[in-house]
Every structure is written in C-alpha cells, then in structure tokens.
Simulated assay, not measured.
Amino acid sequence: MAQAKQTRGLRRNLKEQLRRDQIKEAAINLFSTKGYQQSTMEDLAAEAGVSKSLIYWYWEGKGALLSELVDTCMNRYIDLLTDAVNSDDPFIDRFYRTLWQYLEISRQSDRLNKLVHFCSLHTPKDKKEDFARQVNNHYRKVLDLLETLISQGIKTGYLPSATDGPAMALALLSLTEGHIYMSILEDRLSLERVYTGIFFLLFDARQKNGSGKANSGAASAAPL
C-alpha cells in the first residue's frame, strides 16, 4: 500500500516536472521570437498548449518565469566552474575539461543564452523584474570563480606569474558575452573555434618558451 502511494507520488512529480519544462521551453521560444515585453500570458499559454491558469499555478507571472530561466541558465556555468576550482585534478586537465564542458553547455543553451543576454540589458518598470541586477549578480559569481581558477593556474605554473587574474577573468566573460551578441546579429565563427585559437596559442607559447608545465599530450587531447 505504502509502495503504491510512493509510486503514484513519483509519477505525479515527474508529470509536474514535464509540464514545467514544457512551459519553460515555450517561454524561451516565445520570448526569443516575440520579445518578453510584447508577450502576454495568453500568448504563452497558446505556445505551451496549456491553460493560463496552469502557468499561474507554477509562477505568479511571466516575470517570475523569466527569472527562473535566468537562474537555470547561469547556474549551469556557476556549478561547472565551482566543480573546476574545487577539483584536485592537475590544473591543465581541469582547465581543458571545464572549457569543453562549458562549450557543450553553451551549444545546448544557445537560445536561452541569447535571451539572458537581452535580460541583462532590460530596464525594469517593476522592481520585481530587475533582470539586469539578477544577471549581474550571476556575472559576479562567474568572475569570482574565474579569478580563482586563473589564480590556481598561476600558482601551478601553467599561466605566467605576471597574469592579471581579474583582467583575464573579465576578458573571458566579455569574450563570451560579445560572441553571443554578435551571433544574434548574424552567424559567426563558433565559440569553440574562438576559444580553441586563443587558449592553444597561450599554452603553446608557454611550452615553446620552456616555461609551461602543460605537456603536448594534454593539449592535443582537447578536441578541435
């Protein structure tokens, strides 16, 4: 009897999660094509194929839904960087693993990334919809984690001792944000190709100068 109730509960929770995911995916589609300000709850209900009351059951409004999408997007990168700085693996292994995982997340979340970028430029009429502040708070966490990772690279000798950690962290984040914006305007080189060119050049130069610890096997193991 108890097991049957537990099974029904699990099925109900799964159904609830699938419904939420369905609505969130519809919101990404709608906000990305029509625009957040121009989209109504009626539009969202039609896009998701559900009733408007069901959306209100999960969120108090479209602002709360978009806020959750922002957190979902940014927390993926924050969790990835947190794992990287806390790992005991050699720096070069952590660095390349984190880079390729980051690029994979970026590919999978392309539309959501672009939506969050627009949110960061959004001027709120309602304090509850201060998406710019929300996104910026996430950016601060990303910058702190990047600075920590870069500092670890300096301490282990994989990055030059003169490396300006805060400047490099900001440059990496700016590169990503700039690529997202430029890709909105028209198709560009993939972010993977951009990062590959920059970091392989950096570590290859260190190896040729005899000052880097990265071996050619670690560098060549990264996919092009």
Rank of each mutant, 00 (worst) to 15 (best):
V70I: 15
N75A: 04
N75I: 09
I78L: 03
L80Q: 05
L81K: 04
T82C: 03
N86E: 13
D88A: 09
I92R: 01
F95A: 01
R97W: 07
Y102F: 15
Y102L: 10
E104H: 13
E104V: 08
E104F: 12
E104D: 14
E104L: 06
S106I: 00
R107K: 13
D110C: 01
D110V: 05
R111Q: 10
N113T: 06
V116L: 03
V116C: 02
H117K: 13
F118I: 12
F118V: 12
T123A: 06
T123C: 08
P124K: 09
P124H: 14
P124V: 11
K125N: 08
K128F: 14
E129R: 07
D130V: 12
F131V: 13
A132V: 02
A132E: 05
V135G: 04
V135I: 09
R140T: 14
K141W: 06
V142W: 03
L143R: 02
L143Y: 07
L145G: 02
E147R: 05
E147K: 08
T148R: 05
I150H: 00
I150K: 02
Q152Y: 04
G153V: 02
G153W: 00
I154R: 06
T156C: 12
G157V: 08
Y158K: 06
Y158D: 06
P160S: 09
A162Q: 14
T163H: 05
T163V: 08
D164I: 10
A167G: 10
A167W: 15
L170R: 14
L172W: 04
L173K: 09
S174I: 08
T176K: 09
E186M: 08
R188M: 14
S190Y: 06
E192G: 05
R193S: 11
R193N: 11
T196P: 00
I198A: 15
L202P: 01
F203Q: 03
